[in-house]
C-alpha cells in the first residue's frame, strides 16, 4: 500500500498527463478514421464492383502486425505523435468502413425506391434514409474501433508517440512491475469507460422509431 501511495506522489501528475496523451492519440486517430471511412463506406455502396476489392485489400492490411506498420512509418514520417496517429488511423478504418458499408447496404431496397420515386436527390437519400437507418451499425463499428485503438495506442510509445505505453515498455525493460501496472490499468479503465460512453452515444443517435421497433420485436 505504501508503494502505491509513494508511486502516486511521485508519478501521479505524470500519469494523468500520459493518460491524456494516450486518449488524445487514440481519439484523433479514431476521428480521422470516422471522417475518412464513413463517407468512403457510403461511396463504396454505390460501386459494388470496387467495394469487394477495397474490402479485400483492407482486410489483408489489417492482418499485418501492428509493429510492422509502425516500423514502416518511421522512415516515411519519422518519430513522434503524428506517425503514431497515422498508423492508428489505418487500423481504425477497417471496422468503421466495413460497418458503414454493410449498414448502408442493408437498408431495404424498397425504401430507397420509395425515396427515389418521391424525388429525393442522391444526397437527400443518404441524409434522410440511409445514414439514419444504418447509424446503429455504423456506431457499433466506431465503438469497436475506438476501443481497439485505445489498446493499440500503447504501441505508439515505440515510435515516440508517448501515452501510457511509455510506462508499460519501461516497466518491461527495467523489470519494474509497478510501471507495467501503472500503464496497463489506466489503459483498461480508459477502454471500458470509452466503451460505456460510446454505448450511450449509440443509443442517443439511434432514431427513436427504430428503438421502439426493436423493443416491439
Amino acid at each position: 500500500m505504501d508503494t502505491v501511495v509513494e508511486f502516486f506522489s511521485n508519478y501521479g501528475s505524470e500519469m494523468l498527463y500520459k493518460t491524456w496523451e494516450h486518449l488524445y492519440i487514440s481519439v484523433i486517430a479514431a476521428l480521422l478514421g470516422i471522417v475518412f471511412a464513413v463517407p468512403l463506406g457510403i461511396i463504396l455502396t454505390r460501386i459494388p464492383k470496387v467495394a469487394g476489392f477495397v474490402m479485400g485489400v483492407l482486410g489483408v492490411i489489417q492482418t499485418f502486425p501492428s509493429f510492422a506498420i509502425l516500423a514502416f512509418f518511421i522512415p516515411l514520417l519519422g518519430v513522434g505523435k503524428t506517425p503514431a496517429i497515422i498508423a492508428l488511423f489505418f487500423y481504425s478504418v477497417l471496422p468503421i468502413l466495413r460497418n458503414t458499408y454493410t449498414g448502408v447496404n442493408g437498408v431495404q431496397k424498397s425504401l430507397l425506391e420509395a425515396g427515389r420515386g418521391m424525388g429525393m436527390t442522391g444526397w437527400e437519400r443518404i441524409r434522410y434514409v440511409e445514414v439514419p437507418l444504418a447509424i446503429p451499425v455504423i456506431m457499433a463499428g466506431i465503438r469497436l474501433s475506438v476501443v481497439y485503438l485505445i489498446g493499440w495506442a500503447t504501441l505508439a510509445s515505440f515510435i515516440g508517440g508517448g501515452g501510457l505505453g511509455d510506462y508499460i515498455f519501461s516497466g518491461l525493460n527495467l523489470y519494474q512491475p509497478e510501471f507495467i501496472i501503472a500503464g496497463a490499468v489506466p489503459v483498461t479503465v480508459l477502454a471500458l469507460l470509452t466503451d460505456l460512453l460510446l454505448g450511450k452515444v449509440e443509443n442517443w443517435v439511434t432514431p427513436k422509431g427504430m428503438k421502439k421497433m426493436r423493443q416491439a420485436a
Partner: peptide
C-alpha cells in the same frame, strides 16, 4: 428528374414507409 418526381405521387407494393420517421 428530381423535380419531375416531386410532382408525381408514387406508391409501391412494399409500402416503403420510413421506419425511423413518425
Amino acid at each position: 428528374p428530381v423535380q419531375l418526381r416531386r410532382e408525381i405521387g408514387y406508391v409501391i407494393q412494399q409500402i416503403g414507409l420510413f421506419p425511423h420517421m413518425t
